[in-house]
Design a protein around this nucleic acid. Structure first.
Length: 223
DNA sequence: CCGTGATCATTT
DNA sequence: AAATGATCACGG
């Protein structure tokens, strides 16, 4: 499905507010998984499906025509994020000339449709409720911090220091493993420009940051 | 294996 | 409890 503008997508997404995953699954003839251990990406893929996202596993926003990235966000009953938010893989080789302005992470984060879902672990999956979806764009200050984080991380990577990068680096963006398991290795720049094998990494948004985005929205709208 | 969708499990 | 590191599934 294509949308003329972000507002049309937002309207569609907000029409699901208050529904449970069980209700939506019944409507769309899907089966609700009993647990997510072996279906970790199911919620995100299901919401993509009912909203008509088309990008699949391409490294670009979910709705390229309108430049909007879709992210489900698990929250507790108090509206606090339960997890970090994956954004994209961290490029580890061929990064000469790669800058914030033309990065995948920036293109995805320029405009995000957040779909919060009350998803505390004790709530059965079919009873988890869609909260109010909202559109978000980084402020000038937020983009500056994101850019700083991105450049700090890529500086380490380009200098052969990926092994020195851990989840503590970055104010908003952090770097964590992103792999099938610890045996899935990929090429990276090593000391003195050598090539080494290392765990694939991903950029993630810290929960404290997405918490701030939620608070900002719910303060503005007083919902 | 890569990049997408994330949550799980262990450590702090 | 929160943060960090590890893992699961799928299409290409």
């Amino acid at each position: 499905m294509q949308y003329d503008n972000p507002q049309a997508l937002l309207d569609h997404a907000q029409s699901f507010a208050g529904s449970t995953l069980g209700e939506l699954c019944e409507r769309y003839k899907e089966q609700v998984p009993q647990q997510l251990l072996h279906k970790k990406g199911w919620v995100g893929q299901f919401i993509e499906m009912i909203l008509g996202a088309t990008s699949g596993s391409l490294a670009q926003p979910d709705f390229p025509d309108i430049g909007v990235e879709l992210k489900t966000l698990p929250i507790d009953e108090q509206g606090r994020p339960l997890e970090s938010t994956y954004v994209s893989v961290v490029p580890l080789i061929d990064i000469q000339g790669l800058c914030w302005e033309n990065s995948v992470v920036r293109h995805k984060l320029m405009h995000v449709l957040w779909v919060p879902i009350v998803a505390s672990r004790e709530i059965p999956i079919e009873k988890r409720q869609i909260a109010m979806p909202f559109l978000w764009q980084p402020s000038v200050e937020q983009e500056q911090t994101l850019k700083q984080d991105f450049e700090d991380i890529l500086d380490h990577v380009s200098m052969g220091g990926i092994e020195q990068v851990d989840a503590r680096l970055g104010e908003i963006l952090q770097v964590r493993p992103k792999a099938a398991n610890s045996k899935a290795l990929t090429d990276a720049i090593g000391p003195d420009g050598s090539t080494i094998k290392t765990l694939p990494r991903g950029f993630y948004l810290r929960p404290q940051f997405t918490k701030h985005c939620l608070q900002q929205y719910f303060t503005e709208t007083q919902v």
